[in-house]
């Protein structure tokens, strides 16, 4: 599948214009009191379901902007999950952000 991604600045573009930046995992945690294990978990460990997930993309061949969006890796379609609670947090990814 040569799918497309909607850049918030440039619109729909071929996926090969972008760099994948991985799961949304929230901002870099404060260093004070951060254990080694917490750090390496934050940096590397994920749950990866075949469901919509929030992730980061960089439009390097376009506007040079990082943005996050929801994509379902089982279909490669942009897709927001149904909100499960009032905050509208998706049910499937870890790291709600801060």
């Amino acid at each position: 599948m040569t799918f497309r991604i909607t850049c918030p600045v440039c619109g729909s573009r071929d996926v090969y214009e972008f760099t994948y930046g991985g799961h949304e995992r929230g901002p870099r945690p404060a260093q004070e009191g951060l254990s080694a294990e917490e750090h390496f978990r934050w940096a590397q460990f994920r749950t990866t379901r075949a469901e919509a997930q929030e992730e980061w993309w960089y439009h390097g061949a376009g506007c040079g902007v990082w943005f996050s969006m929801w994509r379902n890796p089982a279909t490669n379609r942009e897709e927001r999950p149904e909100p499960v609670d009032a905050r509208g947090t998706g049910p499937t990814t870890e790291g709600d952000g801060e």
């Binding site: 870099r28 945690p29 404060a30 260093q31 004070e32 951060l34 080694a36 750090h39 390496f40």
Partner: peptide, 14 residues
């Protein structure tokens, strides 16, 4: 410097 949250610093410390 822990304030800047330097990329790599936690790993080096570990």
């Amino acid at each position: 410097d822990t304030e800047s949250r330097k990329v790599g610093a936690p790993a080096l410390r570990a």
